[in-house]
Design a protein around this nucleic acid. Sequence first.
DNA 1: CCGATAACGATGCGATCGCATTGAAACCTG
DNA 2: CAGGTTTCAATGCGATCGCATCGTTATCGG
Lengths: 191, 191
Amino acid sequence: MPRAADHEQRRFEIVAGLWQIVAEQGIEGVSLRTVATRAGVSMGRVQHYFGTKDALVVAGIDLLVKRAVIEYDATEGRPPQDRLLHLLLQQIPDTEAGRIGVTVWYAYFAKAMTHAAVRQILAEATRVGVEECTRHIEEADGLYEAEARARAIELLALSDGLTLRVLIGDITAEEAEASIRAHTSRRMTSG
Amino acid sequence: MPRAADHEQRRFEIVAGLWQIVAEQGIEGVSLRTVATRAGVSMGRVQHYFGTKDALVVAGIDLLVKRAVIEYDATEGRPPQDRLLHLLLQQIPDTEAGRIGVTVWYAYFAKAMTHAAVRQILAEATRVGVEECTRHIEEADGLYEAEARARAIELLALSDGLTLRVLIGDITAEEAEASIRAHTSRRMTSG
DNA sequence: CCGATAACGATGCGATCGCATTGAAACCTG
DNA sequence: CAGGTTTCAATGCGATCGCATCGTTATCGG
């Protein structure tokens, strides 16, 4: 093994540059050259670690999802209500870094409409999100699976919709968070 | 006035081509050439009616919003509950044409993050949407403005979030519609 | 210590891009 | 019917694109 470099670290540095480009210029702004420049590396390096532009783009959403999973896993052991709130509130952009992250997330969501591999990754991520939320709702509210699942989907959808409105500047992050907290402490439906 | 052509009609034909490209390949796929080819016209024509690519892209979201407004205006005179449901259900993709429309809509939503003019148009559209929903909720449920507005934002956010999940294939259009209908007939909060 | 190989940086290529320019029909006005 | 103007189609240009290729350097097993 000659000339060893930390693969994971190098790939992360480049993907971090990718995220910045996506947040600032959208996925349209991504090219091997712009990402390399933003990451402060040569274009040859980007090619070496990702091969094609497409693989680089896919790696961008893959790493973003993995990061979110790691953050969520760190809440293990906490009460179900806490973990549920983490899943519902994690994406609401309260910090600048958070705003970049969620902007990138929704950029990829649009990309998923026309890119099968990206769609696959996002679909899997949302599937896991629904399942985890369902588990916590079952445990916290004593609901059965079907009911808890319907509620999980509704809460996650509400969180998504409110996040979009925060991004466009229609409401503030605080208002979105308050709305979500209200809907999780009280019951969402009266029935 | 020599060589009269129906401006509005010509512009619409081209924008229709633009929408198809956006739905199939995302905004990344938009170029003066691809749109011209898809619309079945020459590239010169596209340039003549829109000048620059940027103006063409902006016209794409502008026309999309205007179409939605026209459809909504057609519900005037119907009971507030009906008009509210129209606003909440309009974007849920039940037909193929509807799916294309809403795909384009969210493609532009991502674009809005990095494009001021697009963001402006979408922000205005959502602002009007919230106001109209608020009016109908006031009238239908007898709520005061502040409460009705909060509920309008929640219902619209729910609709957005469910739509995203339909687009990614997580739930069906029917499930999304059922969820929205349940939340509008019953009260969303118990308090 | 020496080839084999990973890790690049540099460069070239054909394709495509947005846009400007040009010129020719087509049509209405006077 | 002459002239001005709109409506395009065609083409050219410089920039940028993804990607392939080549050459170099550094490192480690044998």
